[in-house]
Design a protein around this nucleic acid. Structure first.
Length: 376
DNA sequence: TCTCTCACTCGAGACGTG
DNA sequence: CCACGTCC
DNA sequence: ACATCGAGTGAGAG
């Protein structure tokens, strides 16, 4: 909610903290993604895709395509799942549920976990077959993403949500999708703090004044004034002593300390106890799971996997100079994806299998030879 | 008059083809 | 390169 | 087996 405001403030007052880089610069970088947000977007924002059992599989399709796109660009993604929402967020969730209407007991039972159980399990299964690690956050996913960045295990957080910044994610990238453009917007937290002349604590205060999800905001105190007053007085308490309480009433049940603590000492997964490993995607497993079990269009799955494979076998695209030694890449042929039996295939598609020869997929080991650091 | 805030609406992903 | 229709 | 979230407008207050 207050996210747009923060984006505006940053663009206007700390434009130097925002840079655009081509996606290629993130080759070999570990990037944390908020899984719940992505999945929810796939599920809601899209023409819903139903398989023959009437199950909505938009999230699988979306996650499959998007993750392969990242892998093709040499990115090492790690997905972070939301845990239990903090108590301070309950009023907001309740309001949303109420606005949504009808069912409050359903909302009640759903409070513990954001995503329906089977939905999440499907995604975890898919990620496992893709060889991509995922992390279960105890609370807000953004908080754990930030902790992973701070620990150095992860290079940056990829999200459209600005929450990661007050949580302390040093780098935040946006617009990470497979658009033609391939330009990624990177926001540097240290640069923001330096340009605004603020500490992280003051930045959190700013975020609170802008109207974060965890507590109400002060009436008639928008981005411009909030920034100016905070820079002038240092803390929200000091700001409050310098504005007219009549004109700027505080919201009810305003837990300022609790909200600050939520950002500054959030409940996160311990990065020290997390090991991130990436394996090659398992094409056979993917076809089995997506096409046979979940009834995604089989030829589409295979086509996409094949494209991924071809991209693997010629990594020269990114760096024409540095050639990956041929020995470094082990190539192995896999059996046919399609089991010899054409059973599950209803004859509705007359000629869906044009080139049989290309159905053989090869698994290549992604070159460990990395490119030098991206910007700064 | 201009700036700022707030309430509202709308679009949203990835692919292949032409 | 873009606009458009399909994905199940 | 349900409803998200931010960017972009327009009205109104200070």
């Amino acid at each position: 909610m207050g996210i747009a405001r923060l984006a505006d403030v940053i663009k206007e007052e700390a434009a130097e903290a925002v840079n655009s880089f081509p996606l290629r610069q993130y080759r070999d970088r570990v990037i944390a993604l908020d899984a719940s947000i992505a999945i929810y977007q796939f599920r809601t924002a899209m023409p819903k895709l139903f398989n023959r059992n009437g199950e909505n599989i938009s999230h699988l399709q979306g996650l499959f395509y998007r993750t392969l796109h990242l892998l093709e660009n040499g990115i090492k993604p790690v997905f972070v799942f939301d845990g239990r929402p903090p108590d301070l967020k309950q009023p907001l969730l309740a309001r949303r549920a109420e606005a949504a209407g009808a069912r409050r007991d359903a909302a009640e039972s759903r409070r513990a976990e954001n995503l329906p159980r089977p939905l999440k399990q499907d995604c975890e299964t898919l990620l496992s077959y893709l060889g991509v690690p995922y992390v279960q956050a105890p609370a807000e996913a953004e908080a754990t993403c930030a902790a992973l960045v701070k620990s150095g295990k992860v290079w940056c957080t990829a999200t459209e949500d600005m929450d990661a910044l007050p949580f302390g994610s040093l780098r935040l990238i946006r617009h990470l999708s497979s658009k033609k453009n391939c330009e990624v917007e990177e926001i540097s937290l240290p640069d923001i703090l330096q340009k605004l002349g603020m500490t992280q604590e003051q930045f959190v205060d700013l975020y609170i004044l802008l109207g974060c999800d965890y507590c109400g905001k002060i009436w008639r105190l928008g981005p411009k004034k909030a920034l100016k007053l905070l820079q002038q007085h240092g803390t929200i308490e000091q700001v409050l002593q310098n504005i007219d309480p009549q004109k700027h009433p505080l919201p009810a049940n305003w837990d300022l300390e609790g909200t600050r603590r939520l950002f500054l000492q959030p409940e996160v997964a311990d990065p020290g106890r997390i090991t991130l490993e990436w394996r090659d995607p398992d094409p056979e497993g993917l076809v089995r799971f997506l096409a046979h079990e979940k009834h995604m269009n089989e030829s589409r799955v295979c086509q996409r996997l094949q494209r991924w494979q071809e991209a693997q076998s010629k990594p020269r695209e990114a760096q024409p100079k540095q050639r990956v030694p041929r020995e470094g890449r082990r190539q192995r042929k896999l059996g046919e994806f399609f089991p010899a039996s054409k059973r599950a295939r209803p004859p509705e598609v007359p000629g869906p299998r044009p080139s049989r020869k290309r159905q053989k997929l090869q698994v290549g080991t992604p070159g460990e030879a990395g490119s030098p650091d991206p910007g700064k």
